[in-house]
Simulated scan of single mutants.
Amino acid sequence: MAESTSSPTPVPKVNDDIPSFKAHLANSNRIIAIIGAGLSAASGVATFRDKTSPWATYDSFMISSPAGWKRDPGLVWQFYSSRRREALLAKPNAAHYALVDLAKRKEGFTALSQNVDGLLERAGLEIRDHDGKSAGEENNSGQLIRLHGDLFSLVCAGGCGYVEHDNVDDPVYGCRVLAEEAIKERMARVHILGADMDLGKKPPKVSALLFEGIALKNKRILGEEKFREANPTVGDAKSLRDVQDRKGKNEEIGKEVGAKGGGETLALHSGIDKSELPQCPGCKKDLLRPGVVWFGESISEKIILETDEILDKSDGIDLCVVIGTSSQVWPAAGFCERARAKGARVAWVNTRIEDCKSRREDDWVFLGDAGEVVARILEP
């Protein structure tokens, strides 16, 4: 059988020619910036992939999804209270201010941001289509569309329609269980499955949802009278992880459980009662939740229509700058190609070349810290 003589698809070279980029920028009128967490990482705001965060080992669907909220709103509120606090302590970096300056120079500039930390707004970029603090007010002149909401908006989880903007209280509504020290103390005392329990310093491949499913199955097999509910231990989690790793890539587990032993109990829930969490002042029966888009939720129709209007304008797009995003979350992951279809040349800013997946031969690729790179390439 003859071997194939076809050559592999060539990988585009990295084009980091700042002068040619600036020349194109100077002649561009309609500019789209697609912004991800890498922009704010330079300000100290942890990304979901940041392994230094104390929340890095938690399953994202347990702390940032409708299912996670339904099973344990206390754990979700702990996570988002920590994120709010982190964002409040952070300051806009040079890249945030460079984008604001670009917006002043280029009326046709629009930022499509997946970030929820409020740093672009604090740097001075005006929000497009914010519901506003006064009933009925809208602002369609702004150049920032917040695709995933923001940490400092609160909405009724029950859907009564209550919305509150710009709430920077810490803790939220004075809830003591959401204060910084209370969260640290509870995380040290209540080891929820999903936290790193010396299982090799990697996120366990087992979750609270798996153990709950096993318990439910055992309950059905044994019956109500014989079944005795108990939380899993570190040893239980490690055993399951050993099995899963052997079935997978046969990776080294790392350190043994060690001094903690295999019998330490792992909790499945935070143990926080709903009465201890922010209550909706509108309906007075449901909880408030962060005004962000969770995994498994759709971006609001209003935002989708706004974004479509920007991307589908008949006069085309001159330049698309993709900043600090791995382009894995839809619909934002498709914005670059839509801009390209409208005639845009594309520039990528990221720390990893692997995250510039759909780059082409005539794209610019600038590798490095977004806080520094964006400020440098956008400098007039």
Rank of each mutant, 00 (worst) to 15 (best):
K313C: 11
R176N: 06
G74N: 04
V206I: 14
V322N: 12
Q114H: 10
V100Q: 09
R83N: 10
A41Q: 10
E164S: 15
G158E: 13
L119W: 03
E137S: 12
A215P: 02
D50Y: 01
A344Q: 11
T351C: 03
N167F: 05
W55G: 11
I299V: 10
I377K: 10
G263I: 00
K357R: 11
L147C: 14
K219A: 11
A103G: 09
E297L: 13
L151W: 08
V374H: 07
I35H: 04
L144C: 11
S28L: 11
V349L: 02
D242E: 13
G213W: 09
A370G: 05
R340G: 10
L277N: 07
E225R: 12
R289T: 00
N15Y: 02
G74R: 07
K13N: 14
V374C: 10
G296Y: 06
A215C: 08
G161S: 09
V373W: 07
Y173M: 15
I214F: 07
I35M: 12
R128G: 00
I317V: 03
G36H: 13
G263M: 10
V76H: 04
R360E: 15
G316A: 04
D131R: 15
I63S: 06
K260G: 14
I299M: 12
H148P: 12
I272M: 05
G262L: 01
D150H: 15
N350H: 02
R83K: 09
W77K: 06
L319A: 07
G324Q: 07
G136F: 07
G263Y: 07
D236A: 08
D196V: 00
D369K: 04
R176G: 03
L89T: 03
T325Q: 09
C175K: 15
G213L: 08
I299E: 05
L288H: 05
L199G: 13
K302V: 04
I323L: 12
F61Y: 05
F61E: 08
E180Y: 13
L199Y: 00
N27E: 14
V100E: 10
F21V: 08
L268K: 13
A95P: 12
W77S: 09
D196I: 00
K106G: 03
E121G: 05
H96N: 06
I221Y: 06
R360L: 07
E297K: 05
A237R: 06
Y80L: 06
G291W: 03
K205W: 03
A94L: 05
D369I: 00
L112W: 02
E361C: 05
K285V: 12
H165E: 08
